[in-house]
């Protein structure tokens, strides 16, 4: 019950502080821009003839993956920048003092802030991601294989980064918690590339190092889930081929979805880190 109160407070702050309005405006600009670009692509004339449908779709598929990649960074940064202050600000300005003197569990504050932030980001992912996919479909006729699964994986990325930001912010100032969780996301992404290189070169040590990073901060595994859900089957086949030859490393294609064990790990990770955040908050002096 109190968890919902804190979640609503978090959401209300985002709306009141005009963050929602600003982000909505920017997103619309970006959507309009992609719509214009894709429309030009679909109606382009090369050597006196329009580009073949297959060509347009293939290009659109590549663009969707590029957009999703950039989007995953925006979402991760958003999670760090929204989650950390949601938790740390009220501690820094002393607002939390009178609140915690009420019959409130400290865990309810942490979980409520988490829930509010994750809901806000999930909503943003659904709306902005959905709009972009709609624009792609209307302009080029292309629909990626599993668009909803991809958006769900991106929401998972947001949840992981939010969890880190909030757990850190239970003890650290907003700026530190936000920057560290954003850096962890970047580190996980680099870890994913290292793993891909290791696999391509048949270097087990490199591949293991990447896997360890993926276990410590499971955003890259989730990003690959999104990637797998967005790429046409032919991309995956090409990637498998390249891996087999040990030639090209393409971080923008994967051969298989993340194994269920990794997804379970990511879920367990969120629960464990959130629990650690609650413990850190419960044992601190204010």
């Amino acid at each position: 019950m109190n968890v919902v109160l804190f979640a609503v407070l978090t959401l209300r702050e985002l709306v009141r502080r005009r963050l929602v309005a600003a982000v909505a405006l920017l997103t619309l600009v970006i959507v309009a821009f992609t719509a214009w670009g894709l429309h030009r692509l679909a109606t382009a004339v090369v050597d006196g003839a329009p580009i073949a449908d297959a060509g347009v779709r293939g290009t659109a598929a590549g663009i969707v993956i590029m957009l999703a990649f950039l989007f995953s960074f925006v979402v991760a940064l958003g999670a760090a920048l929204v989650g950390a202050p949601a938790m740390a600000e009220s501690i820094a300005n002393g607002e939390i003092l009178a609140v915690l003197a009420r019959p409130v569990r400290r865990a309810e504050v942490v979980l409520g802030r988490w829930l509010g932030t994750v809901l806000a980001l999930a909503f943003y992912i659904a709306v902005a991601g959905g709009l972009e996919l709609l624009v792609v479909r209307v302009t080029t006729g292309y629909v990626p294989p599993q668009p909803l699964t991809a958006l769900a994986y991106l929401a998972g990325v947001a949840a992981v980064v939010t969890t880190a930001a909030i757990a850190l912010a239970a003890r650290l100032p907003a700026l530190a918690a936000g920057i560290v969780s954003a850096l962890l996301f970047g580190l996980a992404w680099i870890g994913g590339i290292v793993e891909a290189i290791g696999l391509a070169l048949g270097n087990a040590r490199l591949a293991d190092a990447g896997t360890i990073v993926a276990l410590i901060f499971p955003t890259d595994a989730l990003w690959r889930g999104a990637l797998y859900a967005l790429q046409p089957a032919v991309f995956g086949a090409l990637a498998a081929n390249a891996n087999a030859n040990g030639t090209v490393v393409n971080p923008f294609s994967v051969t298989s979805p993340p194994p269920p064990a990794l997804i379970a790990w990511a879920c367990g990770w969120v629960v464990a880190v959130l629990a650690a955040g609650v413990a850190a908050f419960r044992t601190r002096d204010l």
Binding site: E13, N93, G94
Partner: peptide, 16 residues
């Protein structure tokens, strides 16, 4: 804690 009131020394309520 439902039966006590507390005015902290240093605080700022959310301005929004």
């Amino acid at each position: 804690r439902a039966r006590i009131g507390y005015l902290p020394e240093l605080f700022r309520y959310p301005d929004w």
